[in-house]
Design a protein around this nucleic acid. Structure first.
Lengths: 159, 159
DNA sequence: TATTGTTATACTCTATAACTATA
DNA sequence: TATAGTTATAGAGTATAACAATA
């Protein structure tokens, strides 16, 4: 992965200018770096961040409606349908159509889903621990607080 | 965009548990929120964040090599080829094959590219200003510092 | 009529490998 | 042989609109 000599000698000198002051740009750059860590950790498994978050939230909220899940995770309904179909096909999730509203779908983990979640839970939670991503504990706490403010600003300011 | 009444009455009660303590998950959630702001601001234009960053970096670094650009922005070479082709097709960028190494490609803005950049420069830089994203100036500075640490940890720790 | 979720379509981004032309 | 960039292909995510079943 690291060449013995830098392949692009110029790489150092690239000037990003004011881009490093753009929250949007820097969020993307940081996300790429942090996801790299994720995929290194979960190499040779079939665990993907989006899928795993979905399993997690279903586990925390039994009989969650599919639409509610989609809104919570900012996933479009059409995409959520495919994501859930995949999880059902893998035997991790089951769909329940409740008699009180037969348009809707409620989701729950299967036994296999629960086992899958438990197997990877601890790795998932600790991939991005402070030392792993090169921050101190205090910095990580600070960062999480700021990200929560950004991510949940609409919801929290409205009630 | 906002229904007069919450469409999913349950939405409040969804519990994300330890997910809100995962740097990776929260980076994604924050990015979605912040990009929403971007697309609201640039609605009805053809400006996209990735494309615009590329134009920006080319402007800051004349005669940048395409591969160097790709590595800097964490864009895969194959994707960079298509991205540049689009920018060339739009008349914003020109490709120069230097005689000293005719395998490589150096990039520069056209006049149209410079005009395009200047027209949107200020909007682009200020979409994510503190007040726009619901943070104080101090918080934004703090956030940017932490994101830079994450994004550039490999490069900065190696020299 | 409105809502829930699905299907269909299209475009972007990512990932990989095979290819070309140069070196 | 190795490198720079391209092409081709496939998968995942995103966005939109049209649709069926149900309310």
């Amino acid at each position: 992965m690291n060449a013995p000599f830098p392949t692009g000698v110029e790489d150092d000198s690239v000037d990003l200018g004011a881009l490093t002051g753009s929250v949007g740009f820097m969020l993307r750059m940081a996300q790429v770096a942090v996801y790299d860590q994720f995929f290194r950790e979960f190499a040779n498994t079939d665990v993907r961040p989006g899928e795993f978050s979905v399993l997690w939230v279903i586990a925390m909220n039994p009989d969650l409606r599919q639409g509610t899940l989609a809104r919570t995770l900012n996933i479009k309904p059409a995409h959520m349908t495919k994501l859930v179909q995949r999880l059902v096909r893998e035997g991790l999730v089951k769909r329940i159509v409740p008699p009180e509203d037969r348009r809707s779908v409620r989701l729950a983990l299967t036994d296999k889903g629960r086992i899958h979640l438990n197997r990877h839970r601890s790795t998932f939670l600790h991939v991005h621990d402070a030392e792993r991503i090169g921050l101190t504990d205090a910095e990580t706490t600070q960062l999480l607080g700021l990200l929560q403010k950004l991510a949940f600003k609409d919801t929290s300011s409205c009630r």
